[in-house]
Write a protein that binds this DNA or RNA. Structure first.
Lengths: 351, 351
DNA sequence: ATCACCTGTGGGAGCGCTCCCACAGTACCT
DNA sequence: AGGTACTGTGGGAGCGCTCCCACAGGTGAT
């Protein structure tokens, strides 16, 4: 077996050097072919490709990473316990979008949960070691230090819901304001006048924007805003039930509810039913997300659809661009892109 | 800034060399401390650790991987489309077990779906590049070529359900035979005499073993086995419904059904209900997996519990051992461990 | 005093790539 | 003929580690 090098290798994987020897060219040329550089003649390229095929050459990722100072991997970081990840379709849809887009590339996707303190410490260590070229961040709360850590380490990152209007990271979001507004306007157009809102977690910026949209829609419709019709929730089913109880106790005359998520709406529905209110006859109900829950609810739930898969795809696009530009946009003095995708109201029997 | 080396570096991450200089020791010594070698004096170790802390040194994974020829990463390969992964609690439980055990180590877990042909080709490439030190394989069908590829590449691997009694890979499994047997015996003890079985996909070895357990239990109870009471399913809800219809048409006198999964049982329940059979009064129903579905079914479903999380933990244990031994067990002439975990029948109102 | 044998340490060589400089060859101007 | 500019190519240097050989210094036997 014709190998060179001092340490006798035992017929392991072929190296660039061996491919070069076989093709009768230099190391640099093989590298150029492997990496798709245009500065190679057609004949040479063909010879190299033949040698690669004959030897079954596969580049050594570690060597490449060391020499080129990149990893060809990106992380999808979910700052939640795994349980929530599996429970909420939001995440799997996002993953699907990212995965689909990523299949076009040579990049590797890592899924990292950072729900517990321990996991977060691990993640920090991981990022400090620069084991990924970029990070996709979903579901981040307003006070999360993760984005700052990323900025400090100069790791390209894209966030799925900005933390505030002044988000410094590149972000992709759906139009929470517009979505909420369309839901409230829809209820107004159905002749409802006492429209309540169960909010999401208010430390999530998008939840605040939904409240804004709801408020503005009612005000512009000339209904005015009754603050007693607004009850905070937390995106969960129990939170929705709790809020619904509070609302019914406070305003028994309400005739519609706009919930900040489908899961919240499910909790509200349960309480409405127990209290003998018919949906939609007595109380119209609208949710947010247009998840499977909405379609399977009894009656089927009107809901605001977010293009989550597309958000995933766009996030990846933006991240890859940032990585290609090799620096976070801010350190190049550019403004961070803030992409906002439109929502769509899906009308069903509940309203 | 005190850096050496020809290519002027711009104050990037500290290297081993810099830590060594700071601690006043050699490169080798720092490496020994980092890797926990015992051959270092306490004083030196302390000095190195101080330097590491001061400089915020984090080892460069790529360099380590290149020099040591390992990646410190393992893959959990799911030969299914992502959709099924999220739909079936089996996978997330398994992931939880693996994740918990892995948190103890420095290893990185990759989640890889290989449902489509395209994804499988990608995976093959990935494995050929030896980008992971080992592989955890779940839900593999009898004719899957993946295990052979792994063996050929000499990548340590552990499989979650053996493909056959002659599985060549290290495997972890629950006692499908015993689990099915306990389910059937339970129905017998409840006085049922016409006990049907809806099987799983029969190209999955575990599904076959469940049929065996069912058969033996009935035979040993002196009931004999009526082959018309066995109907093939495929672990899905639709499959369960279809099989239930066939069974009712063929054997209207059946008084119990043992389904190969909870999801299958859910499909069967739907049909039984439509046909006006009461559960458990007319027909007793038993499932398999003891998933959330079983607890939430109406009536709650008796089911065979598999310790899936523990299976995940055990798989990881075995894999890490094999990696530490640095060769797949078979090439060292050892017999592959075949670990089998016990199941437990959880009795509820459906039987 | 000599030898053997520990423990702890330093540093050369090498892992398999990419980057980049150097240079041969060709083409097209002055 | 000489200059300039490009294309295609080879190969040195270096990425930041681990591995391992060499060796200093100590200890206890002969």
């Amino acid at each position: 077996m014709a190998t060179h090098g001092a340490r006798g290798r035992s017929g392991g994987r072929p190296t660039l050097e061996e491919v070069a020897a076989r093709a009768g060219v230099g190391r640099g040329t093989v590298s150029r072919v492997i990496n798709g550089s245009p500065r190679v003649s057609d004949a040479t390229r063909a010879a190299v490709e033949a040698a690669v095929a004959e030897l079954g050459y596969v580049p050594n990722t570690a060597a490449r990473a060391l020499a080129a100072n990149r990893t060809d991997a990106i992380a999808l970081v979910v700052p939640e316990p795994e349980t929530r990840f599996f429970a909420e379709p939001y995440f799997s849809d996002m993953l699907k979008g990212v995965g689909a887009e990523l299949a076009e590339t040579e990049m590797q996707l890592l899924l990292i949960f950072a729900g517990s303190d321990r996991e977060r410490r691990r993640l920090a260590q991981y990022l400090a070691a620069h084991r990924v070229d970029g990070v996709l961040l979903v579901s981040v709360h307003a006070d999360d230090p993760l984005p700052d850590l990323l900025a400090q380490l100069e790791i390209p990152a894209v966030i799925s819901g900005p933390r505030s209007a002044a988000e410094t990271l590149t972000s992709v979001d759906s139009d929470n304001y517009g979505g909420a507004r369309s839901a409230a306007e829809h209820l107004v157009s159905r002749g409802r006048t006492r429209i309540a809102h169960i909010t999401g977690r208010l430390d999530v910026y998008g939840a605040q924007r939904r409240v804004d949209g709801y408020r503005d829609a009612l005000r512009d419709a000339g209904h005015g805003v009754d603050e007693r019709l607004i009850e905070p929730g937390d995106f969960t089913e129990e939170g929705g039930a709790r809020a619904m109880q509070a609302l019914l106790a406070r305003c028994p005359d309400l005739d519609a509810v706009f919930a900040a998520s489908d899961v919240t709406a499910a909790g509200a529905r349960q309480v409405l039913r127990e209290e003998g209110r018919r949906i939609p006859d007595d109380v119209a109900l609208v949710g947010y997300d247009d998840s499977a829950i909405a379609r399977h609810m009894e009656p089927p739930l009107t809901s605001v659809r977010q293009p989550i898969e597309e958000m995933g795809r766009r996030m990846l696009d933006l991240l890859l661009t940032e990585i290609a530009d090799r620096r976070p946009a801010v350190s190049r003095g550019l403004e961070r892109p803030q992409m906002v995708l439109q929502t769509e109201l899906v009308t069903r029997a509940s309203s």
